[in-house]
Design a protein around this nucleic acid. Structure first.
Lengths: 230, 230
DNA sequence: GAAATTAAAAATTTCGAGAATGATTGATAA
DNA sequence: TTATCAATCATTCTCGAAATTTTTAATTTC
């Protein structure tokens, strides 16, 4: 393989990578609500057939990242405050329960991983407070954010809960990106994540649930201005 | 469209119907755990191409009704007590929460629909107590059972909760069918459903949650004999 | 000018063939 | 007899073209 081929990153990608890529483009707000997702257009970005894209879009539709209507194809779901709150409430319910089980079952190894994940996330978020071009950091921030929340529930003992949370995390991000500026990044997240960490390490499930609730309560106090429900 | 075309139901089936059909065959235990699901074999049952079956199996994999491994195709997931309990616990968590919200928000119309759904289910379950060939009634019983649980949460205000419960209902049934005799039908369900109905109509969310927990507690007292975890 | 009909264009869905990959069988040798 | 390897078979995966449907544009009619 030549060096020139390296720039052509789209040479040959498996479906899993295409899935991750499109989901990321949705969560980062590049693919905007309402936009139609035509397999024949997207194929150019990934160097594969329309059929392969179609399969990926089907899988994304199962996770509710795109809408699908028979004979009418795929499109990016509308971002509404109603839907965002629905996703948030579901996520708070499940993440609180899963965190409580992790607190009850997690060992010292789990504590160490949670500390490490929080350290990376906090470093990133402090750095982003003063960043010029926020856009450039969103992808990495998203990864660290997910790694922290994933680690929090990683000892809960139920892959069902964990996988459901994974989908909800990205659904939440996607809705947020379509409704608020700065891709949903806020100053307050640093302290909020710290509160979740402390409650988890203190093995206090009630306090942890409350910290999780707090982490998402900003939507109640300060509803996004452009959040018409249609 | 002519009247004659209506009778020819098997001529041309849309993907949604194939999805429902295969999911039902899984929930009723016809397609047994471990069995490989080859698109080229299943196509004969539905008169379409292997590609169409492949897409349906992908969608079933999203709902966790079948396992998918790259380059190795699809197969019916193993039924284990561990997995069954995981699904049960998740379902109890969500159904309790969704029922509580329905109790808080549901109007008289909701009460009426819940009564109607329970009436049909109870009638069916009493009839099945003395039925000779249980197998013949499973499909209808499954529908009535789902309609009752669906109606219970239908006023919760979150389509996310409702759709998640829909998947969990069939996942639970599928695991149960693979682990216990009689497709999971028990004598006790009549009284248990009645307790859920009464608590909901009494607008008592705590009592309703307890009744739901009770409805699934038989797995703790009387673990299925053939439930080796592999 | 507005509404309804018709024609053209674009997108979706289905399908079967060929390429790529994994599984199976049978032969050979230790 | 057991293990290794090669050849064979079956299945999965990818793809582009044909058929169906929807959307858009143009035309006609009231």
């Amino acid at each position: 393989m030549t060096a020139a081929a390296k720039t052509q990153v789209t040479d040959h990608i498996d479906q899993g990578s295409i899935y991750d890529s499109i989901r990321a483009r949705l969560a980062e707000g590049e693919l905007k609500p309402g936009k139609r997702l035509k397999p024949d257009e997207l194929r150019a970005d990934y160097g594969c057939s329309a059929s392969a894209i179609r399969e990926v879009l089907f899988r994304l539709a199962c996770g509710r990242f795109v809408d699908f209507e028979e004979q009418r194809g795929f499109r990016v779901p509308e971002a509404t405050l109603k839907r965002l709150l629905e996703i948030r409430d579901f996520r708070v319910l499940i993440e609180s329960e899963a965190a409580a089980r992790s607190i009850a079952r997690g060992d010292m190894e789990w504590e160490a991983r949670l500390n490490a994940a929080h350290h990376k996330l906090a470093h990133m978020e402090v750095k982003m407070r003063h960043a010029q071009r926020l856009r450039e950091h969103i992808a990495i921030w998203t990864r660290f954010d997910w790694e922290f929340h994933e680690t929090l529930v990683s000892a809960c003992g139920s892959s069902l809960l964990q996988d459901t949370l994974h989908d909800l995390f990205y659904q939440y991000r996607q809705q947020l990106a379509g409704l608020v500026p700065d891709y949903g990044f806020r100053e307050g997240t640093v302290d909020e994540h710290k509160a979740i960490l402390d409650a988890a390490l203190a093995r206090n499930p009630e306090k942890c649930a409350e910290a999780i609730r707090q982490h998402f309560s900003f939507l109640d106090d300060d509803p996004p201005s452009s959040a018409g429900t249609v």
